[in-house]
Amino acid sequence: MKRILTAIVLIFLLPMLLLGQESQKRILFFGDSITAGYGVGEENAFPAFIQQKIDSLGWNFKAVNGGSSGETSAGGLSRIDWMLRQPVSVFVLELGGNDGLRGIDLNTTKKNLQNIIDRVEAKYPDARIIITGMQVPPNLGPDYTTKFKEIYPDLAKENNAELIPYFLDELGGNSELMQSDGIHPTEAGHRLLAEKTWKVLKPILKSKRAENHTN
C-alpha cells in the first residue's frame, strides 16, 4: 500500500519538479580566464559567488560559467553558438582583455564583441546584456590604451546594455586581491568582482522575476 501511495505522489509531483527545472533562468557568464577562475578554480570564481547570492534569496536562476582561459574575442565568437544551445536570460560579456594584451586591431576586437552580442540577441531577444569594461597597460601607447577603453561604453550604449565600468579597477596593486602575476584575481578579488557584478545584476533579476509572475 505504501508503495502505491508513493507512486501516486511521485506521479503528481514529477511534472511540477520538471516544470521547476525547465523554468530556471540561465545567466551565462561568457569570458576569459577571469571568468574561468584561473588560479583559484571555477568554484572560487565570481560567477560561483553570484550563485551563492542567488541561492540565499531562493531565486530560480542558474549562473553558468562560460569562461575559457586565454580566450580572445575571436575565440569567443567561434564558440558562442555552442554556448547558446540552451536558453539565456542574462548574458554577461567579459572578453577583450587578451586582445588588448596582444595588441590586436581595435576595430577587429569591437567587431567580434558586437557579433557575439548580435548572436545572443538574435537567438534570445529577451536576454539582458551586461558588459564588463576592460583596460590595458599603457605600454602599447596612449592612443591604443584610450581607444581600447572606449570600446566597452560604446558597445553598451549602442546595444542598450548595462555596463560595469572597468571591471578590475579596485584590484590592481593589491596583493590580497590579485595573484602574483598581477593579472588574475585571488579568491578575495573574485568576491569583490561578485559584489560589483551583483549591484548591476540584482535589479535585472528582480525585473525578470516580475516578468515571470505577470505572464
Rank of each mutant, 00 (worst) to 15 (best):
V200M: 03
L106S: 13
K202W: 12
P15K: 03
E211I: 08
G37K: 00
I183T: 05
M83E: 15
S68F: 12
Q24V: 11
T186Y: 00
F61G: 12
P153C: 06
R79N: 03
K53Q: 15
Q24T: 14
G76W: 01
L163F: 05
A45K: 07
K110R: 14
A156I: 06
H213K: 14
I50E: 02
E187G: 00
I116H: 04
D55R: 06
K111V: 08
T72D: 09
K2F: 12
E94I: 04
A63I: 09
L57V: 09
I164E: 10
S207E: 15
N174I: 09
G96L: 04
I4M: 12
R191G: 11
V88M: 02
A161D: 13
R119A: 02
P15E: 08
I80K: 04
H184E: 02
I11R: 11
L13W: 12
E162G: 11
N215L: 14
G96H: 02
E42R: 03
G100M: 05
I104S: 07
V64M: 11
T146K: 15
E43F: 07
L17V: 14
A48P: 00
S23T: 13
G67I: 01
H184G: 03
I27W: 06
W59G: 05
N159F: 06
Q51M: 09
M134V: 05
S180A: 15
M1A: 13
P15T: 08
I130F: 12
E121K: 15
E211H: 00
G39Y: 08
F167Q: 00
A7G: 13
N98K: 00
I50D: 04
I104G: 04
G70Q: 01
L168M: 15
N174C: 08
G58A: 10
V200R: 00
D99T: 04
A188I: 05
G39R: 06
V92K: 04
L101A: 06
I204L: 10
Q24S: 10
G75P: 06
K110H: 06
I50Y: 01
L57C: 10
I34P: 03
D118L: 09
H213P: 00
G20D: 12
F46H: 11
M1V: 12
L77W: 07
E176Q: 08
F30K: 04
I4G: 08
T146G: 12
K110W: 08
I116K: 01
D32H: 02
G39H: 09
E43I: 11
A122I: 11
G39M: 08
L113F: 00
L5P: 10
F167P: 03
T6Q: 14
Q86A: 13
L57E: 15
I204D: 01
L140F: 15
V200K: 05
